[in-house]
Simulated assay, not measured.
Amino acid sequence: MTATIDYGNLMHRAMRGLIQEVLEDVRDNGLPGEHHFFITFDTQHPDVQIADWLSDRYPGEMTVVMQHWFDNLTVTEEGFAVTLNFGDAPEPLYIPYDAIKTFVDPSVEFGLRFETQESDDDEDDVEELAPVEPIVEDVSEKISESLKDKIEEKLSDTAPGEKKDADVVSLDSFRKT
């Protein structure tokens, strides 16, 4: 019996299970509404499978977007495979859940960040996982000013009386003080 409960690893497994369940639903039913994912992963993870030119271009980490076009989504207990478009060139990727650093769905301002911290014990090269930090924040603050201007310009192009698709609402207005 262990001396302590490893809550950090238990949380990581649970959150990676959540990602697996979400991806299985997307595989079976497609992306609903405006949902899309930004997935950042460690390109040096031993089980990641990406084209050599991608690992050369992104030697540490890479962020992929699953939104308008993706194909061949396969979800397993250990990770997922998907074909994404890079400059009109479809590329197959395999990303194990253990390689994921962040999983974000900006359409609903939801995200997960998986942080690792190295063990102080030099004899043991096992990484200890830091607690999972859920990211629920107003992502509009991270949008560059030029992108904000383009969005406002697009919104102002909407004719009077024409229905807009959605309005961005900050969660700050709902927070208790």
Rank of each mutant, 00 (worst) to 15 (best):
L147V: 13
D28E: 15
D105C: 11
V48S: 07
A3T: 14
N29F: 15
D42Q: 07
L147N: 09
G8A: 15
K101L: 15
G111F: 01
R16Q: 14
E133K: 13
N72T: 10
V64T: 10
A81D: 12
E137L: 08
V22D: 07
D105G: 04
D121R: 01
R175M: 14
F174T: 15
P32Q: 11
V64W: 01
E133R: 12
A99K: 03
D149C: 08
D121H: 01
D125H: 00
D120I: 00
F80R: 01
E123Q: 00
N9G: 06
S55W: 00
L171P: 10
E137Q: 11
D42L: 06
E137M: 09
Y58A: 13
R57M: 11
F38R: 05
K154R: 08
T2I: 10
L171E: 13
F41H: 10
D6K: 01
V22C: 03
N29P: 06
S144M: 11
G111L: 02
L171N: 14
F110Q: 02
D98H: 09
S170D: 05
V108R: 11
L129D: 03
P160H: 06
G33N: 13
N85Q: 15
R175W: 07
A166V: 15
D157S: 05
E162Y: 05
V26Q: 09
V169Q: 11
A130G: 07
T177R: 04
V169G: 03
E61Q: 09
E128A: 06
L155A: 08
H45Y: 08
A51D: 12
R113Y: 04
M62D: 13
A3N: 12
F41M: 12
F110K: 01
G161A: 09
A51M: 09
